[in-house]
Design a binder for these strands. Sequence first.
DNA 1: GCCAACGTTGGC
DNA 2: GCCAACGTTGGC
Length: 143
Amino acid sequence: MQYWLFKSEPDVWSWQQQLAKAPECEEWSGVRNYQARNNMRAMRPGDRGFFYHSNRDRAIMGIVEVCNPAHPDSTSDDPRWECVDVRAVAALPRPVTLAEIKADPRLSEMALVRMSRLSVQPVRPGEWAVILELAGMPRDPAP
DNA sequence: GCCAACGTTGGC
DNA sequence: GCCAACGTTGGC
């Protein structure tokens, strides 16, 4: 199982909306960047990801699970663009802000810090654990 | 609202 | 194939 991070502008698609949909799956549509798309192609059902709010919040809000492997993005006529489906699994007890992430030397290599514009990115297992700790969630929620 | 970083486009 | 121009993203 691999870990990921999905970025969203809260004004466009928020964690609250994702959570309200649970346990239903929702297309992670709209990605128009090759690197982000390739990351989604590498995902497998059961993989976990963080749901990050960009712009005003700039914080990791919750955990999602990949439901389906990459398939054509229904919001594009261009077959190059694919996406996975995800569902909300659990909110973090406390959101972890970008400022906290940047302040923690254990997270200095995170793609969120290094490649701030990449909207779908991998998370290392060690980074996943540190974020859960900062969120006050010592145990990974069971599938 | 500004601007840096970065991706894409198109002329040559 | 190079690079300037331009558009977008996202932090501040």
